[in-house]
Every structure is written in C-alpha cells, then in structure tokens.
Amino acid sequence: MKLIQAITLAACALTLAACNSTEDTKQNAGSANDAAPTDAQTVTDHGAKDKSEVGFEMAGGNIEEATNVPEKEKTAILSAFDEYMDAFNAEDIDRYMNVISKKPEGFNYNDEKVVVEQAFDEYDTIRTAEDVTIIKYDDSEAQAQVFTNLHIALEQTGTGAKLDRNGRQVTVFAKEDGKWLVTSVYFIGDTAE
C-alpha cells in the first residue's frame, strides 16, 4: 500500500512540477512534498492568491478560448507550452528550467530544479496534453493561461510500478525578457470511476 501512495504522490509531484513552494512550510499544506490528498477533487493551487485568478472553474466549467490573443503571441505561448511539456518528457533538466520563470508566483525556482531532478532520477513519466487552449490573456500584465486535459503515465524505475492519471491543468505563463515562461500551475485530478 505504501508503494501505491508513493507513486500517487510522485504523480502529483510530477504533474505539479512547477508548483513547489517553500515560502512558509506551515502554509505549504497540499504541496508536492506532502502526502497525496485523499480527495481527488482537491485543487492544488500553489502560489494562488485568489482562485479567481484562474480563467475557469477547476471543478468543471466550460473551456472557452480567449479571443483577445494576437496571432504572434498565440503562436509564442503555445510554442512555450509545447517546450514545457517536451522538455519534461525528455527529462532534460536544463531545457526544462529554461521554460520556468526565474521570478515565479507559484513556486521557488531553485527548489523546483531539485524536485524535478529527483523526479527524473526516480520515475519515467510521460505527460500528454489534449485540448490545449489559451483561456486567458492579459497584455497589460504580460500573462497568459493555458488549459489542457492532461494524461500522466508514470513508472517508478526501481520497482516498475506504474500509475496512470488524468486531470485538468492550467499553466500560467508570464512574459519575461520577450519569452513566455511558466510562473505557476493549477491541477486537479479526475476522480476514479
């Protein structure tokens, strides 16, 4: 049973790779380093000051594409999201950290690198995104939110234990020095049927 809990925790940690926060350990309940939540509908929203910051209701709601995104920015944001996913799946830490904000809102950059390196060492993970949609774009704040239905296939390298998980994720990007970088991530796993 502990193996299943460890794998579930690892899946959450990998899904939320850009969500680690050490600003206040007393307020860090629900972090990737805590035990896995018992309620699969629990929102893990590290760094969120207000859930209304996310462009849709995590527990359901309609997904609508933002209509105010200039075509050039849309291409750049979606390309940054693809690189974020591809770098993680390739387990290339340098490439992955190049798409992570150095001034994140939802995690600590240095802690993120440590957590992801550990995950790459202990697990083989493939994250597959479907229905990738820019749901919110704010030119004045230089931020964008990308929604996706996410499938995570995880295998622990030492034991061969496997876990598959589906959920919905919003990845928040901030434009820094002309590049779109991940600044926070919101994820909710689907309940088992």
Rank of each mutant, 00 (worst) to 15 (best):
A35C: 05
T125V: 15
D24V: 05
N108W: 10
E23T: 10
T42A: 12
A129L: 03
D86F: 01
P70E: 02
V43N: 07
A48F: 10
E71D: 15
K136A: 00
V69W: 11
A36R: 01
N98R: 14
V99N: 01
E105L: 15
Y96D: 07
E117G: 02
T75E: 11
T75S: 12
T128R: 06
K51I: 15
P37L: 00
Q41H: 09
I134N: 04
T44N: 03
A90C: 00
G47V: 03
F56T: 07
S21Y: 02
F107Q: 06
T42W: 10
G47Y: 00
S31Y: 06
T128F: 01
S31F: 04
A129T: 05
S79G: 14
I126S: 09
T42K: 06
K103I: 15
N110A: 14
P70T: 05
G60T: 13
T67H: 05
V114A: 13
K49T: 05
V116P: 01
D138S: 15
A87F: 05
A66C: 00
E122W: 04
K72W: 01
I135E: 03
E83I: 06
N62E: 14
K103G: 00
A29H: 11
A40L: 15
L16G: 12
T22A: 02
F107N: 14
G106H: 09
V132D: 07
I100W: 02
N68Y: 05
S31K: 08
K103S: 14
T44V: 03
E91A: 15
N28G: 15
Q27A: 14
S79L: 02
T38N: 15
E122L: 11
D50Q: 04
M58Y: 06
D92M: 12
C19F: 02
N62M: 10
E91W: 08
F88W: 08
N33E: 09
T75A: 13
Y84T: 02
A35W: 04
L14N: 07
Y123P: 04
S79H: 05
A129K: 04
Q118R: 03
E53D: 13
G47L: 01
I77K: 14
D138E: 10
D86H: 07
D82M: 06
K26S: 03
K136P: 00
V99F: 03
I126C: 13
N62L: 14
D121R: 11
D24W: 00
I63N: 06
N98F: 03
A29L: 08
V115I: 12
S101M: 00
I93R: 11
P104Q: 08
K102L: 07
K103R: 13
I135D: 00
T125R: 06
N62K: 14
Y123R: 03
E23Y: 14
A119N: 09
A119C: 08
A129Y: 02
A40Y: 13
Q27R: 11
Q27D: 11
L16F: 08
A129H: 00
L14A: 00
V116D: 01
S101N: 11
T67G: 03
